[in-house]
């Protein structure tokens, strides 16, 4: 036992559970806006994740208890569940979680070794394999023609059966981003589209408040010194600047940049997903480049690409650039004129 003899580290689990705590306000507003189904999908994802993690840890002959209880797999499960539609069938959640934990995490070497954000790999796999399910978002409860209780939502997720006489279309509708994209294709102007009832002041009904709560959670993570603000601010900045550029060019066809900040996965992505330390850039300048590029790319995929949102894909693409970014952004070391060698 050599020096130092004192430690303040909270352990991996301490970090992970505090990140999960920061998600709680968002989840509360999720329940208010879309009903309790998100709690069901969080539970399914968590249980699946714990089981798969335990199996993988055992297969890899690691000590099961410290690794299963480190909280990292639960956070992955939560981020995945919060990214996919909340009333997804149970098997969709299970498949996504298994892909995230087995393929994205453990086949790359487990905690700390994965190149790509596991939750986003799970999301991307589901998006590509089951696009129909992944665009089935429930309508906010304030807009839905019918109201589904906990039991109805649970039954729908487990069996796909709706209460007698109810159609799927009555409870589902396109997301705000999707609606905007479709309507713009139909040659409506932005101001016309935003008159539709699904939109709130600067985002979607209900989802705007969830985004605000994620922002709040993110500020907590920053204050608790779990994340630095480099990545979130650069991410939001990249998205905002791209949005502003197109908005100033043609405000009829491109929505205002602040709308992009409040919709889709922006806040969750900026504060909870792009900041995943294992897969994000780690040098101060690297974090800025990583965040900015991911934010700008999110805009490109959202607005010019075929998918309704771009957070997952842009984060995954930037994950691949992390080793390069880190190598070329090594900061100067004390007593060196510049960092002469590390960047070679």
């Amino acid at each position: 036992m050599s020096s130092p003899h004192i430690f303040e580290g909270h352990g991996v689990s301490g970090t992970m559970f505090r990140v999960m705590a920061a998600l709680v306000p968002g989840i509360v507003f999720y329940v208010i806006a879309f009903g309790p189904s998100i709690l069901i999908s969080l539970t399914i994802a968590s249980l699946t994740a714990l089981a798969v993690e335990a199996a993988m840890i055992r297969l890899r002959a690691y000590p099961v208890k410290p690794f299963v209880t480190d909280g990292s797999v639960l956070l992955t499960a939560w981020l995945l569940a919060l990214s996919i539609p909340p009333m997804s069938p149970w098997w969709l959640i299970v498949v996504g979680t298994v892909i995230a934990v087995v393929f994205a995490k453990h086949l790359f070497g487990g905690l700390g070794n994965n190149l790509f954000n596991p939750a986003m790999v799970g999301f991307a796999a589901l998006m590509i394999s089951f696009p129909a399910y992944m665009t089935h978002w429930p309508a906010p409860t304030v807009l839905a023609g019918v109201h589904l209780g906990f039991g109805d939502q649970l039954a729908y997720m487990l069996t796909g059966a709706l209460p007698a006489g109810m159609e799927v279309d009555a409870i589902n509708m396109a997301t705000p981003l999707d609606t905007l994209k479709t309507q713009l294709h139909l040659h409506h102007t932005v101001s016309e589209v935003l008159q539709m009832p699904i939109f709130d002041v600067i985002g979607g009904k209900g989802s705007m408040w969830i985004a605000a709560m994620y922002l709040l959670g993110g500020i907590y993570l920053w204050r608790a010194r779990i994340i630095s603000l480099h990545i979130p601010l650069a991410f939001l900045g990249g998205l905002f600047l791209m949005g502003a550029f197109f908005y100033l060019k043609d405000a009829d066809h491109y929505v205002a940049p602040w709308f992009h900040l409040a919709t889709g996965g922006t806040m969750l992505g900026a504060f909870f997903i792009a900041t995943d330390p294992v897969t994000a850039a780690a040098t101060p300048r690297g974090k800025l480049i990583f965040g900015f590029a991911a934010g700008a790319l999110t805009y490109v995929i959202r607005v010019l690409g075929g998918y309704p949102d771009g957070v997952a894909f842009s984060v995954l693409i930037l994950n691949a650039f992390v080793p390069l970014i880190d190598t070329y952004t090594q900061p100067r070391v004390f007593g060196h004129l510049k960092n002469e060698e590390a960047s070679k």
């Binding site: 991996v12 970090t15 410290p66 690794f67 905690l111 700390g112 994000a280």
Partner: peptide, 8 residues
């Protein structure tokens, strides 16, 4: 535990 590159 394994390093998570938290950069603290």
């Amino acid at each position: 535990m394994p390093c998570t590159r938290c950069t603290h």
